[in-house]
Nucleic acid binder design. Structure first.
Length: 201
DNA sequence: ATGTCGATTTGCT
DNA sequence: GCAAATCGACATA
């Protein structure tokens, strides 16, 4: 095991969430309070005035306000009334942008994560999919807005680097309603990795 | 292997 | 009222 360092605020404080989404692949998502950690293998960027798929496109609401907050915090929201989605807030405060975490490969606390998901530890369904990984890691709605450097959820760099040939880039999942924005190639995933969600197109 | 459908909060029309 | 940055149960083949 390589030594992990928590990502600094500067990692998140960049103008373009697409860059952050790409660089998040291979990083470690950790919940220190229960010893679980997993490697990020799939992400999607959201934000900017042209992105109709972004929750912030129509402005601030009670649900999406943390997207407008400082970078390096977690935007957690409820989807379809039951699934918790974990996003990383990027861009300067006041600019709404975030990266959705869509797939993770468990690297610590695998048994605990598998138990929460009711699958065996080697089953990709434990961490493949945005709703699946938050359940596996025990991420709670109450953590919305928490700090990713010192809070209950942290993201670390253990030195892993992915070349462009190991990364797949394509359309985002489940945003067909968003007009031209539906075709933005803002989804990133690790090639050949079984912990990437099964997307329908 | 593929298709339909229900769960259930949030926000727009 | 209805669709949503989804998932899993169940049906059919």
């Amino acid at each position: 095991m390589r030594r992990s360092k928590v990502l600094p605020k500067s990692f998140y404080a960049r103008e373009d969430p697409v860059e952050v989404a790409r660089d998040l692949l291979g990083k470690i998502l950790r919940v220190p309070s229960d010893g679980c950690a997993a490697r990020i293998v799939e992400t999607e960027a959201y934000g900017g005035p042209l992105d109709r798929a972004s929750h912030a496109w129509r402005g601030k609401t009670p649900r999406n306000q943390t997207m407008f907050g400082p970078p390096g915090t977690a935007y957690i929201y409820l989807c379809y009334g039951m699934h918790r989605m974990l996003n990383v807030v990027t861009a300067p405060k006041g600019v709404a942008a975030a990266v959705l975490i869509r797939g993770v490969e468990p690297v610590a606390g695998q048994a605990r994560m598998a138990r929460r998901r009711k699958y065996s530890p080697n089953d990709p369904r434990v961490g493949a999919g945005p709703g699946a990984l938050t359940q596996a890691l025990g991420i709670r709605m109450g953590w919305d807005g928490c700090d990713l450097v010192s809070g209950p959820i942290r993201i670390e760099d253990d030195g892993m680097r992915l070349t462009d040939s190991e990364v797949r880039r394509g359309r985002r999942v489940g945003v067909d309603y968003a007009g031209p924005a539906a075709r933005f190639p803002w989804r990133f995933s690790v090639c050949e990795n079984p912990w990437v969600s099964r997307a329908k197109a």
